[in-house]
Structures are given as structure tokens and as C-alpha cells.
Computed example of a mutant assay.
Amino acid sequence: MKEKDWYSYDTRWDLYAKDREDFVAKFVVEGKFHEGVPEDVIKSFETVSYLLAHSYYHWPMMDEAMTKLLLILEMVVKLKAQELEISLERKTKNNKIITRRLIEIIDDIFQNEYLLFLKPDFDRARNLRNMKMHPDRHSFMGAMGFTDSNARLFVNIINLLFLETDKLKALHSKIKSIEATLQPFKSGLHILEFQNKKILIDGFHMFKYREFNKNKLLMMYINPLTTKVHEQFLEHKYPEPLIITFTDFIINDNSIEGVDLNGKLMKIYSNEKEENLKVYQKYLFALSKISEIEIGIFSSSNASKALWKIERIIYENCWKDGSLINKESKN
């Protein structure tokens, strides 16, 4: 019998990567954790990285990496519960001691108000667990399962959960404050100036603010006014979601001013000049001709991409000096 070649790459990756180097750059996610993250979690995530890397030779290993991520999620929940002195067990009516369901423990963890800003991200991860642990059928998603994107999401969640309590409380407070000051920019006509361009925008869909050590990021998912409404919504030629990131900023009554990831000036400000209002009215009229179903399909697709792009920005820019976070706070 001919010996199997265990180290030939899986040709299905030809659709996604030019070669192994390109594959690693696109799909392999390394753990980047500050020293407050438990060692068991860090070691377990290393296995995820290896599974992602070795899926180059066997496509289904990408799915196994996802399974490992979800097991890490359970570990993280239990370790955080222990840190918060939340019991992992409960008594039944017959006085029998049983292990509590994961959802019950998660609900108790998020009774702490300062952790609530993490709840939406954690729910995304938990929903993935429910789908993976209770599949309708046996299947392999491979690259289509967004395991690399989920891995970055998990890294970000884990790093946040295990920050010191005072840092989490300060971050929660800052997010609430920014949310209030951003309300005037949520809708209405504005100009976005960045990358030597001026773009007419209809507010923003969502924002995230993250602050670690000296790394501050205000990320906004912007809604630019398109002049190609028919093409975008009916021909499904969806543009990439527009995410802008301020690393330093000031929010005034009528403007947001600051610099982007490359240190370039960036600005959002109200502008209702007559010519802009005409463009806006034309956009709204064209949009009124599109069905709610088509708008919903576009919104869902773009929002999903936007969330993954934001998690990548956090992963790549917040944790590069992650090991310094708690060291500096202890000195």
C-alpha cells in the first residue's frame, strides 16, 4: 500500500492563498495576552494556533481549531467565575450537588455592571458555541467558518475579562461617556475628512472604544452616502464596510477631530450646505425604491464584516504591548 503523504497541502486552499506564507498571514492567529491572563488559557490558545497552521495540510483541522476555541471559552468562564467568587455548583431540591449550566454562570458574571460593555461580544462567542455543540449535521466549514476572525474576537474578550477590576470599571465609564457625546453624530448629514478625501456621510452605525495602557482606539462603522444605490442594493455589489479609527481625538459639539492609526489628521463635522442636502435627498429617494428585504440583506452582510474588521483592529493594535499592561501598573 502506498504511504500517505501527510505533508502535502490541501488544494482547497488554492482558492484563498497563493502559498503557505500567504496562508499563514491570512489564517493563522497567534495568542497575544497580557500577564493577567491565566497561564492555562495562554497554553490552550497555543494549540489553537497550531491547529490553524496545520489546517494547511488538512482543511477540517480549521473546524477543530474552532472547537478548541469554544472549549477555551468554557475554561475562561469558569476561571473568571472563580475570580469573582461565583459558585460553579448548586444544590438540587434533593440536596444533590450538581455542576451549574454555563449560561447560568455567564449570567452571574455579567451581573457586574462594569463588565456589561463586554456582554454583546461574549454573546456572539456563546452563540457560536451553541451552534457548534449542537450541529444539525456533520460538515466542514474550513475557511468559510471565519475561525481566524473568531480567534481574534476570543483573544480580545479574554484580554478584557482578565484586566484588573479598576481598569475595567474605568473603561466601562469611558465608553458610556463617549456614547453620550457621540449622539449628535449618530445620524444626520456630516463630512468625513480622511486620507486626503472628503466623504459625505449619514452618521455612523456603531462604535467601539478600547483603551489599554497607552493604546486608545475609537472605532466607528461609518455610513457613506453612495451614488450607486441600485448597483449596491440590487446587484449586490457590496462595498467593504467603512471603519475609521481615531487613536487620539477630541469630541466637540459639531465635530470629532483627531488622528488615525498612521498619525494622519482625521475629522468629522456637520455640514448641511445646499449642494450636500440635494445629494442627500437624491440618496434618500433612491433608497426609498429599494425593498426592506434588500436593505436588510445588505445591512446584515456589511455589519458582520464590519464587526470582524473592528476585532482585527483591536487585536493588531491593542495587544502588541499587552505584556506591559499589568507590569507597569504594579511598578
Rank of each mutant, 00 (worst) to 15 (best):
M219N: 03
V155S: 12
L160A: 15
I175C: 04
M131F: 02
H205W: 10
R210A: 13
K198P: 06
R129D: 10
Q232M: 15
L118Y: 11
L189C: 13
M141I: 06
P184Q: 14
I201P: 01
N196T: 08
N150P: 00
N213I: 07
D123T: 11
P120S: 09
E211M: 09
N213F: 05
L192I: 08
F204W: 04
D148V: 01
V229L: 11
I244K: 02
L217E: 02
K237W: 09
G258S: 01
K237D: 13
T247I: 11
Q195Y: 04
H230C: 02
L118V: 03
L182S: 08
P224G: 08
K214E: 13
K119M: 10
S173T: 13
N213D: 15
L261W: 01
M144D: 10
F162D: 05
Q195E: 15
F122P: 04
T147N: 03
M141W: 12
K197H: 11
H172G: 02
Y238A: 03
N223S: 14
H236M: 14
I243T: 01
K186V: 12
H236S: 10
P241E: 03
N254T: 02
P239W: 06
I178Q: 04
G203L: 05
R129W: 09
E211H: 15
L192Y: 02
M131C: 02
K169E: 14
N156A: 12
N215L: 06
K174L: 02
N127G: 05
G188H: 11
D253F: 01
F154Y: 15
T226L: 05
M141T: 11
E211F: 10
M141D: 06
L116W: 06
F162H: 05
Y221G: 00
Y221P: 03
T165F: 02
L182R: 07
K169G: 02
N127H: 13
S255R: 01
L160P: 01
F207E: 05
F194H: 13
A180W: 07
S187I: 04
K169R: 13
P239L: 09
L225S: 10
Y238M: 08
G258N: 00
A151M: 02
N223C: 08
F162V: 07
E240W: 06
F162W: 11
S187C: 01
F212K: 07
E211Y: 09
E257W: 01
L218G: 07
H236K: 15
F185Y: 06
K174A: 11
F122S: 10
H138N: 07
E257R: 12
M144R: 14
E231N: 10
P239G: 02
E235Y: 14
F194P: 01
M219Q: 12
D121L: 14
R129C: 07
F122A: 08
K167I: 13
I199N: 03
P241M: 04
N215E: 15
A180D: 08
M144V: 07
M133N: 14
P120T: 01
I178E: 03
Q195H: 12
S187R: 09
S139L: 12
L160M: 13
R137H: 13
N130C: 06
L182Q: 10
L200W: 01
K237S: 08
N130W: 04
G258Y: 00
R124D: 08
K214H: 12
L234P: 04
K228Q: 14
N262Q: 01
R126K: 14
A180P: 00
